[in-house]
Design a protein around this nucleic acid. Structure first.
Length: 821
DNA sequence: CGGCCCCGCGTTTTT
DNA sequence: CGCGGGGCCG
């Protein structure tokens, strides 16, 4: 116990020892906020607070898991596992299941992710006879509804003009959104599903409606702690306020400079106004940065100083000055990726770094493609943390839909998806008729299909028969509340889906079948994991000596419902550790929040991309982009490299963007070769004059200047012997099959291995590195001499005289060429 | 009734 | 360039 307070600096110590009353901890990046949070919880327990009376909320499962682990190290696993620690969503779901009846939901309600939600909105729009193509675009409408829910504006007040939503809808010529909203809510209720926003919304509604629920739930906790408070939205804020209303023991930790989720309703005011909400608040500032070098911290400070209305703070690095921030300019996104790969390799040589010391961050997921391609080409192992590409695959969704429907027969979206997959004689028209029938009577599809009245509808006998057969089968699945894996297997087989996919012998078909297999494996993995957890629990409680003593029969039943819930709440960074080991990490700047790496690259530092992933952005949005960039660079411990490209392929078209304004907002003394602010374009070298004009801008030969930062790069592209030693032994292909858990699978698939190159060892040089007269080698035509280079970037053409094949014109962006020593 | 192909569309970020 | 939806053909 005594170790809990050791090694804390004075500010951290003060924050930890302040255990009663509202507390606001402003924690700069890298200032040890997790440390404070975990120490504070451990300290509370050491003071005699029962662990189960402590509620600690985070945004990601990963953050919760890490905290739990660290607390366990201080107070022991046995105590740590009793704490109510988890994500907002997972904890609130637990409350909602308990009181589901009070808000008119079945306790077994299932969760819709955003895709499900958009699909449901779409069906509702169609159901209402509105135009879902040009006017009421489902995505847009869904995000509108989402915003309203985050503001706790339910359909009735929405329709009555509260919050100004309706007026705004009218201005945007979408006056009927309020109807869609109302109908969508009804749809979800009928279907027994909640979307992400509902989890927060209905928790509020529950607390408003049922005094008993509120006092009961709030009464369980004497101390509440919240991580990343700057990212809470109104709904979360109100829940916290209610839970803490009696004791006010609410400790929130956050950094207004890292608020990056306004787009999903986060209110930066929550942290800015905390002291107004709780006047007796005690405020602590953690300003000592233990993560990054002084150059990085100072650079970040100088950047964020461009934002207004911040909580004043002065972050200071506890480390050495370190390297300056490096800028790298490239012609295209492909070359940018190439340079990053080169820089990684050269850094590994010079610093003895390993792959997992590196992260490549970017603004949009689409940017990962070019990066992947180059990394793969150079045999650098990597892992992409991004959306749910595995769970977005059609075949996976199919099987998941069976699972979902089995757990919740009222889930209409899943019903529609699989009712005729594999084909069982239920036509699209039949489903439409059924849906109309159901809609008219407020039934879900399942109920409608089983309704005796269905005979009187326009549906024909055989159609009804097929529908009912399907329903009966699903009913059978639903009755199975046993082991998730057994249930999953029998569903896969008895539904015919397994065979359906197995029998497709095409290459893609086999890959689809593999995904089905992997999904099933992941169910098995999940069950095993839960059992493991349970066994360890018994050991901790002293019930048994050894985990192996626990007999199979004594293990709790892990249901399919639990599996589904786990999957739906997984975030992009929730990946098994062994999947990330010794791999370069690729992710969006958003996903990187809360993580740290020795070396960080930020790719795509261009106007209209970062800042401005989309189009014109408001001053407020610009500030959020700046905070996002602040988050990105403060992930780095040792070095930051910022890269940008003159031209970038987007939507299939080439775009010429100027270097990001953020590059000049960092005070130049922290940057190795700063871009001069006065010059709006062209970076350090003036070679590229106008924006996208034509004419040969190559061939001057003068560009070799400092475009690549420290020159570290330009020569390192030569292939040296021993290069092969950086090749990954276990690259990014999928791991062992049997005990893989869902997130392992997810990450394995995300790395999308591609077919092998003609010559996998051939590492081409960047197209900008060639000059007339160079001796080069082509991976097919062999050796040759570079002739004149013409054309405009990125469509540079080179006339090459090959020793064996003679003169050829090559498009540089496609040709695989390298220098010969 | 189902599967295939073509066209047109659109693109932040995520629990 | 990649996806989804719709239309057309077998």
């Amino acid at each position: 116990m005594s170790g809990i307070l050791d090694d804390l600096n004075p500010e951290q110590l003060a924050a930890v020892k302040c255990t009663e009353g509202p507390e606001l901890i402003i924690a700069g990046a890298g200032s040890g906020k997790t440390r404070v949070l975990t120490s504070r919880i451990a300290y509370l327990i050491s003071l005699g607070v029962p662990p189960e009376r402590i509620l600690a909320l985070t945004f990601t499962k990963k953050a919760a898991g890490e905290m739990k682990e660290r607390i366990a190290a201080m107070v022991g696993d046995r105590q740590a596992r009793r704490i109510w620690m988890g994500t907002f969503h997972s904890v609130f779901i637990r409350f909602l299941r308990e009181y589901a009846e009070a808000i008119g939901f079945p306790a077994t309600f299932t969760i819709y992710d955003q895709t499900d939600s958009v699909n449901a909105v779409k069906t509702v729009i169609r159901q209402l006879g509105l135009d879902d193509k040009n006017v009421y675009k489902p995505r847009e409408v869904q995000s509108r509804i989402s915003r309203a829910k985050n503001d706790l504006v339910t359909p009735t007040p929405y329709a009555n003009g509260e919050g100004g939503y309706r007026d705004s809808d009218k201005i945007h010529k979408k006056p009927e959104i309020y109807k869609i909203y109302a109908e969508y809510c009804k749809f979800c209720k009928t279907s027994g599903v909640m979307d992400f926003d509902d989890i927060l919304l209905y928790t509020n509604i529950l607390f408003r409606k049922s005094e008993e629920a509120l006092t009961n739930i709030a009464g369980r906790f004497t101390h509440i702690l919240v991580d990343e408070y700057q990212d809470t939205n109104l709904a979360q804020y109100l829940i916290l306020k209610k839970l803490a209303s009696v004791h006010h023991n609410l400790c929130v930790v956050g950094d207004d400079s890292q608020s990056i989720y306004a787009f999903r309703g986060a209110q930066i005011q929550n942290i800015l106004n905390f002291q107004k909400d709780f006047p007796e608040t005690r405020l602590f500032r953690l300003e000592r940065n233990y993560r990054s070098t002084a150059n990085i911290v100072n650079a970040a400070n100088s950047l964020i100083a461009n934002n207004e209305g911040r909580i004043p703070k002065n972050c200071v690095s506890m480390g050495s000055a370190g390297e300056k921030i490096r800028l790298m300019r490239a012609y295209t996104e492909g070359e940018e990726a190439f340079q990053i790969a080169s820089a990684i390799i050269s850094r590994m040589r010079s610093d003895g770094a390993s792959y997992d010391d590196f992260a490549i961050l970017y603004r949009t997921n689409a940017q990962s493609r070019a990066l992947e391609e180059q990394l793969r080409r150079r045999n650098i192992p990597y892992i992409i943390f991004s959306g749910n590409s595995f769970f977005e695959r059609a075949e996976v969704k199919d099987l998941m839909a069976y699972f979902k429907l089995a757990v919740n027969l009222r889930d209409d979206e899943s019903f529609k998806r699989i009712v005729n997959k594999p084909a069982r004689g239920v036509s699209e028209n039949t489903v439409k008729e059924l849906a109309d029938f159901a809609f008219g009577r407020g039934l879900c599809l399942f109920e409608a299909a089983m309704s005796p009245e269905l005979e009187t509808s326009g549906l024909r006998g055989p159609a009804i028969k097929h529908l009912r057969e399907f329903c009966t089968m699903m009913q059978g699945f639903a009755a199975d509340s046993g082991d998730a894996y057994k249930a999953a297997m029998s569903i896969a087989h008895e539904s015919g889906l397994y065979l359906f996919y197995k029998s497709d012998e095409s290459v893609e078909g086999q890959s689809r079948f593999q995904n089905i297999q992997e999904l099933l494996d992941s169910v098995a993995g999940f069950v095993e994991e839960q059992h493991e957890e349970y066994r360890n629990g018994l050991v901790e409680e002293g019930e048994v000596e050894d985990a192996s003593e626990v007999p199979e029969s004594a293990l709790p039943v892990v249901t399919l419902g639990e599996f589904l819930e786990n999957i739906s709440l997984l975030s992009s960074v929730d990946v098994a550790d062994d999947e990330t080991s010794n791999k370069v990490a690729l992710m969006t700047a958003h996903s990187a929040k809360g993580l740290e790496f020795p070396y960080v690259f930020v790719a795509g530092m261009e106007e209209n991309l970062f800042p401005g992933g989309g189009w014109t952005i408001s001053p407020k949005e610009l500030e959020e982009e700046r905070r996002l960039f602040y988050v990105a660079i403060t992930r780095a411990k040792k070095a930051v490299v910022l890269t940008y490209a003159d031209t970038r392929m987007r939507n299939g078209r080439h775009e010429n963007n100027q270097p990001s304004r953020f590059l000049t907002e960092i005070a130049p003394q922290y940057v190795e070769n700063p871009i001069r602010k006065e010059r709006s374009l062209g970076g350090a070298s003036s070679l590229l004059g106008g924006s996208g004009g034509s004419g040969s801008r190559f061939g001057g030969g003068s560009w070799r200047s400092s475009d690549f930062g420290s020159g570290n790069f330009s020569t390192s592209t030569s292939r040296k012997p021993g290069f092969g030693d950086v090749r990954a032994s276990k690259n990014t292909t999928s791991p062992k099959p049997t005990s893989a858990s869902a997130w392992e699978i997810k990450s394995a698939i995300q790395s999308r291995p591609k077919p092998a190159e003609v010559d996998p060892d051939f590492v081409p040089d960047p197209m900008s590195s060639f000059r007339e007269g160079d001796r080069i080698e082509h991976n097919r035509f062999g050796k040759g001499t570079m002739g004149s280079i013409t054309g405009t970037i990125p469509d540079l053409r080179a006339e090459v005289t090959f020793d064996l094949y003679g003169k050829k014109i090559l498009l540089l962006k496609h040709a695989k060429l390298r220098h010969i020593k």
